[in-house]
Design a protein around this nucleic acid. Structure first.
Lengths: 158, 158
DNA sequence: GCCCTCACTGGGATTCGGTCTCAATCCGCC
DNA sequence: GGCGGATTGAGACCGAATCCCAGTGAGGGC
């Protein structure tokens, strides 16, 4: 029983946070945007716009893409372009409050979150800081993805 | 003076390797495919098809994409979809002989290669192996990208 | 609570990266 | 050198994502 959605208070705190961020950018916290945030919070992993529409037929394609762009701009959602297919969206680490990485299934495209132990994370950050310095590169973040085959695809194909 | 291209012998060894891999898949090592491999070896970092065509106007769009797909299939080139823009291609670690990661400029989209110390790489692999086990995920590879701003964009924008 | 204004919505047209089609061409083999 | 099949290249086509614009809803002033 995973990804059954956040507890009530968490959801309200999340909406509060989103509302503030939108206001700071002179944007309204409309019903459609609220719905997108709720859907993303419910599924708890990166999903595509078609998936969101399938889950809630009341969401319009163009509005979904436009609102995702707005929410991305204010730092509420992150866009993930893992392959050539549909882009995926998830709530950012900034609003969810925990740093994580992605398990990417190269067969079905599914993406899940995972975390690594703090000491490994620290080692990675240290190493990357050095690389950035050596390369005259202003690093803002890092991405660590694990690419392979998810349980579902593994059992289906083999 | 970086990325001025590989030494003569390296290039021939590379062509040999590519020819073998293509033959194993019942594919020909044609002039067009040779040209693509040469161009990729010359630039030494992930580039888009339009960039390759700009560098060598004798390359046709459809053929370039088709041949990249073929070369990808036989493990000679890797496709990188860093953002919503053009996909980028580079020679694989298998034919170039060294494991590396990517510096991605979120402003101009430019991608460069970098490596991390062996001990850090090992720590990452160990941690990921454990994650994969815990998640019932069959991992085939990992990707570690550093996202930020490259020197060119940093100096241009201020 | 009501109206007025203006941002937001949504359906379809449009853009654009990438793939497919198909006749012409090239390559490897005999 | 000639034959047969794979490859090429120009353009048609496809699909993801964006743009356009008339209609709608949200929030502020009264």
């Amino acid at each position: 029983m995973r990804a059954v959605g956040p507890k009530r208070e968490d959801l309200e705190a999340l909406h509060e946070e989103v509302r503030d961020r939108l206001r700071s950018a002179d944007q309204l916290f409309t019903t459609g945007r609220r719905r997108l945030v709720e859907l993303l919070a419910e599924v708890g992993r990166p999903v595509t716009i078609p998936q969101l529409i399938a889950a809630d037929s009341g969401v319009a394609l163009s509005s979904a893409y436009r609102n995702m762009a707005v929410l991305e701009q204010v730092g509420v959602v992150a866009r993930i372009v893992s392959s050539g297919e549909h882009a995926r969206f998830e709530l950012t680490e900034a609003v969810m409050g925990h740093h994580h990485h992605h398990l990417i299934c190269s067969t079905c495209g599914r993406v899940d979150d995972f975390t690594v132990p703090d000491d490994v994370e620290q080692a990675i950050e240290d190493a990357l800081a050095e690389v950035a310095t050596d390369s005259d590169f202003l690093a803002s973040s890092h991405r660590l993805d694990l690419v392979g085959t998810c349980v579902g695809c593994a059992s289906t194909s083999g």
